[in-house]
């Protein structure tokens, strides 16, 4: 025979979806938030984000090359870039470069490569990095610059974030403290202090819409998560006005960033629609509980990490609905 045919089992066609398409798709979805962060935090944002992305990519490459001695190039699949972006989005814009390096090392080294690289990590690497930094460097990690300082980096002027104000209202100052909160419009567009990526609610929602439209993610996690938060914070607000209203809760802190981009991380979220609903709702519940009754003003990162640990359990017990009627006996 002139040429040997290739033989393989069906299917013989592929949908042309790829890991890269999904990873870079999420990166594209982050672009509106990126632009907002650059607009509000200027050069500081640029330095933090660039450092974070480059450090993550570098550590993945270096660990693969020198520790795992694996010749396969994995940095092109986009997952390290995405981790870097998300880590950067979870940091304040005045964080020194050396701290960011430590965060990237923990995120990629401990959070991802220790477990075997892409697809094997039980916890969201970016959040592992962020929480490590939050516990190790609480002062640097909780001083947020005021929005609108274009040319400032570590020297930026800092102020209390909306979340801190909300916490203050609960812990003693009462309803009057809530009047210090920025207006709803400012919260929506992002003209207030906070981590880089979390300030602009509208930019994050645009990103979410893009991911849903391109079918990178399904609606289950963000909807169940945000829905739970709205319902619970609404009930709290009705019971006592020192708890801020649902729309303020929704648009402050890392809630939207977490709901749209961190909780929906493929690797660490459950596999079935039912499991995703449970997972999302549980994160929402934990976030509200931590924000309202916990010591930290922000509970999103912890809530997601806690539920990451439950993902294998959810996978074991939440099976998709099998095709077929149940035979009546």
């Amino acid at each position: 025979m002139a040429n040997k045919f290739i033989i393989s089992l069906s299917p013989h066609v592929h949908g042309n979806d790829s890991v890269q398409r999904n990873m870079y798709g999420v990166c594209i979805a982050l672009v509106p938030a990126l632009i907002c962060s650059l607009y509000y935090f200027g050069i500081g944002a640029a330095i933090v984000l660039a450092t974070s992305v480059l450090a993550c990519v570098f550590f993945e490459w270096a660990i693969n090359k020198f520790i795992l001695r694996n010749d396969k190039v994995t940095i092109t699949d986009g997952s390290a870039i995405l981790t870097g972006l998300l880590l950067g989005f979870n940091l304040p814009s005045n964080l020194p470069i050396w701290i960011i390096f430590i965060g990237a090392l923990v995120a990629i080294g401990v959070g991802k490569m220790t477990f075997g690289g892409l697809g094997c990590n039980p916890f969201n690497p970016a959040l592992v990095g962020r929480v490590f930094l939050l516990i190790s460097f609480p002062v640097q990690m909780t001083s947020w610059p005021v929005a609108g300082q274009w040319m400032a980096y570590t020297d930026a002027e800092t102020a209390a974030t909306p979340l801190a104000i909300m916490k203050k209202a609960i812990t003693g100052d009462g309803v009057e403290a809530l009047s210090e909160l920025p207006s709803s419009f400012d919260l929506l567009v992002g003209a207030h202090g906070g981590c880089l990526g979390e300030v602009s609610a509208i930019a994050l929602l645009i990103g979410l819409a893009y991911m849903l439209w391109t079918r990178i993610i399904t609606w289950h996690i963000p909807v169940s998560l945000l829905g739970t938060v709205v319902v619970l914070s609404g009930l709290l607000h009705l019971s006592n006005p020192i708890y801020s209203s649902p729309e303020q809760v929704l648009m402050t802190g890392g809630l939207l960033l977490g709901a749209c981009f961190m909780a929906t991380d493929y690797v660490t979220s459950p596999m079935t629609p039912k499991g995703q609903l449970i997972y999302g709702a549980s994160i929402g519940l934990l976030t509200v509980v931590i924000r309202t009754f916990g010591a930290y003003p922000e509970g999103m990162s912890f809530a997601i990490l806690i539920m990451n640990a439950f993902t294998p359990l959810i996978n074991t017990y939440c099976k998709p609905k099998r095709f077929g009627e149940v035979i009546k006996k």
Partner: peptide, 22 residues
């Protein structure tokens, strides 16, 4: 002589399903 080229999971059981195989 090999008469075809097998493309798939390198497992005898998988190749077996393709009949005579490579």
């Amino acid at each position: 002589p090999r008469v075809a080229e097998f493309d798939g999971v390198r497992s005898c059981r998988v190749q077996l399903m393709l009949g005579t195989g490579e």
